[in-house]
Structures are given as C-alpha cells and as structure tokens.
C-alpha cells in the first residue's frame, strides 16, 4: 500500500522488462477498503451492545417490519459469551465516536471513486442485471453456461459492490435519524419515523454480515493473486516465468 511505481511500458514476453502485472486497485481504494474493514466491525460490535440493551425486546428484529417473530438473532449463551450485556454505555461511546471515522472514510472512498473515474469499473451497466443471474447460477454450480464478457468486475460484482456502498450511506443516514431524532427530524421523518428508521438500520447491519460472509467465500474462490491485488494494487496478468503451469495468475482466477 505504498506509492505506485511508475508504469513500465512496452516489453514483450521473453524480456526481463515484460509487463507481468497491471494496476487493479488504486492506492486510495486499497486504503479506504482496509480501513473500512475494522471500522465496520467496530460499528457492528458496538451496535450490538446497543441493540441488546433493550432486554424486553431482545429478538425484536423483523417484528416491526413484517409482523412476525422470525428468528432469535443470537441465543442468550452467545450473547453472554461475547460480553454484550450491560455494556450499553461503552457500546454507545464507541458507536458515536467511531461512527464519524466510518463516515469520513466512506465519503473519502465515494469522492475518490467519483473523481478518479474508477466508478466506470464499478457501477452497474444495462447488462449487469442479466449478467449477474448467469454469474450467480454459474458460481452455485447450477448452470455452466459460458460467462458473459466482463470488465474488472462482472455484473454480480458491479451490483453488489455498488449496493454495499449505498447500504453504507443508508446506515449512516438512518443512524443519524435515530441518534438525533429531534435535531435531524427531517431525516427521521424521511425514513418513516424513529422505530422504522431503527428497523432499517438493523436490517442493513444484517445485510453487511451477509455480504461479509459471501465476500470472504468469493475472495477465497477467486484465489491468491486476486487477494494480493487488494494489498499491492497490482494483479498478475502473466504467470511467473518459473511457475510454469501454475494455476495462479490465470485469467480465470484473476477475473473474480
């Protein structure tokens, strides 16, 4: 995650100066990505401490939304193990301080992605909805249809990565709506009132957790070079000379 080295141009295969890797994730993208990870974890962890403080309604998630008690979010045992009980004051303190860092980091990412033109790789295009169905069926081993052409991200990735940014923005806005329901009353009203804004806020949190699990699975499937590109910024486009038939670095792995 350091200064990008000047591009090495030219050089065809066979020479020592042949291009073997291409920039995939720019520096600001990498920094904001990795800073966001612990910040989001802290927000979820401290948010759970707040969520769990209302002991009369410990499993209330979904009740206000669909009118049905859907599931126990966490059994009491896990709750106690995680030390979530009676730490409401700390939960609030962490949440309302780190919330600003989460927000600033998110704004920095969005501004950079917009100004740098990186959004062209990320925002869904008109093919993305159709593509994403093909990709998901392919990844679930349901249908081995040839995959549609893709850029840096396939249709499913474009939709998901855009959605997760929108969810981040919604999490901040619904958070403000329930943090300052009088001072930010317009926002609270916009989200349907205090209780509804709260339900949306917690629903988004569940969404983050689902994304997190899927993201880890998909990154694991995409392979090492894809992962390292989020650290170094560069992704191999040509396997190391001494690796011969190594599977790593193939376009198949790099594509995800």
């Amino acid at each position: 995650m350091t200064t990008q080295t000047a591009p090495t141009t030219g050089g065809e295969a066979g020479t020592d100066h042949a291009a073997v890797a291409r920039l995939k994730h720019r520096r600001v993208t990498r920094w904001t990505h990795w800073i966001n990870f612990p910040l989001l974890m802290i927000m979820i962890w401290s948010g759970l401490r707040i969520y769990w403080a209302d002991v009369r309604d410990p499993f209330g998630f979904g009740v206000g939304l669909i009118g049905w008690h859907w599931f126990d979010f966490f059994p009491d045992v896990i709750n106690e193990r995680l030390g979530l009980e009676r730490r409401l004051a700390r939960g609030m303190a962490f949440h309302f301080t780190f919330g600003w860092l989460f927000t600033i980091n998110g704004i920095a990412y969005v501004l950079y992605t917009w100004r740098s033109g990186e959004w062209r790789h990320l925002l869904p295009d008109r093919h993305s909805p159709g593509d994403s169905i093909t990709v998901v069926l392919h990844d679930l081993f349901i249908r081995r249809k040839p995959l549609p052409p893709q850029g840096r991200y396939n249709g499913a990735q474009r939709l998901t990565y855009t959605l997760i940014v929108v969810m981040g923005g919604l999490a901040v806005l619904t958070g403000l709506a329930i943090y300052k329901p009088t001072q930010a009353n317009l926002l609270t009203t916009l989200f349907g009132g205090y209780e509804t804004a709260r339900t949306i806020h917690f629903t988004i949190t569940i969404g983050f957790l689902v994304f997190f699990v899927l993201h880890l699975l998909q990154v694991a499937r995409a392979g090492w070079p894809n992962f390292t590109s989020m650290v170094t910024g560069y992704e191999r486009i040509k396997a190391p000379a001494d690796a011969g038939q190594s599977r790593t670095g193939t376009p198949e792995a790099a594509g995800r």
């Binding site: 990008q4 080295t5 000047a6 591009p7 090495t8 141009t9 050089g11 020592d16 100066h17 042949a18 291009a19 073997v20 890797a21 291409r22 920039l23 170094t232 560069y234 191999r236 486009i237 190391p240 000379a241």
Partner: peptide, 8 residues
Amino acid sequence: PTLDESAL
C-alpha cells in the same frame, strides 16, 4: 499502469 517482474 503495469509492472515488470522485479518492480512487482
């Protein structure tokens, strides 16, 4: 931008 082996 691209990198050669040693730059990578």
